[in-house]
């Protein structure tokens, strides 16, 4: 009896921090270091308001990053989220615009506002369902499928807006959601959405069976199937989850700008992918966390806003992002191989 308890203790006592925790801490400390360096170099950088802005200005990409992270952990890409942002925004405007405007672009379907939002969300979910159909049923690599649906979604948005914008003939309540201040503070509803989504995602990932299923499928899809997991169903849920997030982001953005614009969310799919990779999510699947993705977003935000603060031309943004990505990935690979020696 006492022997068994002793063995129990050692088996528990030797729980060193997991690789997952190690990488997340690494990403978080890189983000902190970069922030401190930027604070020294850039005047007025070290201010509470600026710290908050780093997060709140990026609410859309961080929200998209949640869905993308889950899919990457399951071993799948989602490049369609930027296109869905455009599509759902344009749909919400088109559905809500009243009938009988002066020209085609100011004439919508005249649906009640709530129905317009539901319809826009439905459009977003349809793209997610399309992703799932091709990836799960026809076994086409997800990177190709979502590259295609990215263009499908943006293409439909383009047709509806005739390559331009729809911003007239909207009901008064249309602009409320995107600029609503909550709790009597200056915090806007979209930021609250992001925060709530992050909490929910972390809970699902760490505490729910759903999160664990995602890791199992990503770590070894064959073993998962032979262990009785319904990979197809789970990946379908993940694509619907990701497209629903993108749908909401699109609706909130179109409300904030009170317009449906087919180029909205351009390159957001890549930013979402970049912050996930910066956050230590393995492109092969089975490894990564939403918290890591969040700190990845902070790294990217610090680098780009510090560059602007240093009066570096915005033209340099892509080069900077590229440098950040390469450095982060190399640092992770190096850290993991060193640790596993």
């Amino acid at each position: 009896m006492s022997v068994s308890i002793k063995a129990n203790k050692t088996l528990f006592a030797n729980r060193r921090i997991s690789d997952q925790m190690y990488i997340t801490l690494l990403v978080a400390s890189v983000a902190t270091c970069l922030f401190l360096i930027a604070s020294v170099l850039v005047p007025n950088f070290f201010q509470l308001q600026n710290m908050l802005n780093l997060v709140t200005n990026n609410w859309a990409v961080i929200s998209l990053g949640v869905g993308v992270t889950f899919l990457l952990v399951s071993g799948n890409f989602d490049l369609s989220v930027g296109g869905i942002v455009a599509l759902s925004g344009v749909l919400s405007v088109w559905f809500a615009q009243s009938i009988g405007g002066a020209n085609a672009l100011s004439t919508g379907l005249g649906l009640p506002y709530w129905l317009a939002l539901l319809g826009a969300l439905g459009g977003a979910l349809a793209i997610g369902a399309l992703n799932a159909l091709f990836v799960v049923k026809f076994r086409i690599p997800s990177i190709i499928v979502t590259l295609g649906t990215m263009m499908v979604a943006r293409g439909i948005a383009q047709v509806i807006t005739q390559g331009s914008q729809r911003n007239t003939n909207l009901p008064d309540e249309f602009g409320v959601l995107g600029s609503l201040k909550v709790f009597g503070t200056s915090i806007q509803l979209p930021v609250v959405f992001m925060a709530a989504l992050l909490m929910l995602a972390i809970f699902i990932e760490r505490k729910m069976l759903f999160g664990r299923l995602t890791y199992w499928i990503g770590a070894n899809p064959t073993a998962a199937r032979l262990s009785g997991i319904d990979n197809a169903k789970h990946i379908t849920y993940l694509y619907l989850f990701s497209s629903a997030i993108a749908g909401v982001v699109g609706i909130l953005l179109s409300s904030e700008f009170q317009s449906g614009y087919s180029n909205r969310g351009m390159l957001m799919e890549f930013d979402a992918l970049v912050i996930a990779l910066l956050g230590g999510i393995a492109i092969a699947g089975g490894f990564g966390s939403v918290i890591g993705m969040f700190f990845g977003a902070i790294i990217l935000a610090v680098v780009t806003s510090a560059a602007t603060g240093l009066t570096l031309s915005p033209d340099w943004q892509f080069i900077l992002k590229a440098l950040a990505v390469f450095l982060a990935i190399m640092a992770q690979t190096w850290a993991l191989t060193r640790r596993n020696q």
């Binding site: 890791y215 770590a219 073993a223 089975g286």
Partner: peptide, 12 residues
């Protein structure tokens, strides 16, 4: 390739 999740722990 078919039985284990090699990058996960014994517990997982």
């Amino acid at each position: 390739t078919q039985g284990l999740f090699t990058n996960l722990t014994i517990r997982e």
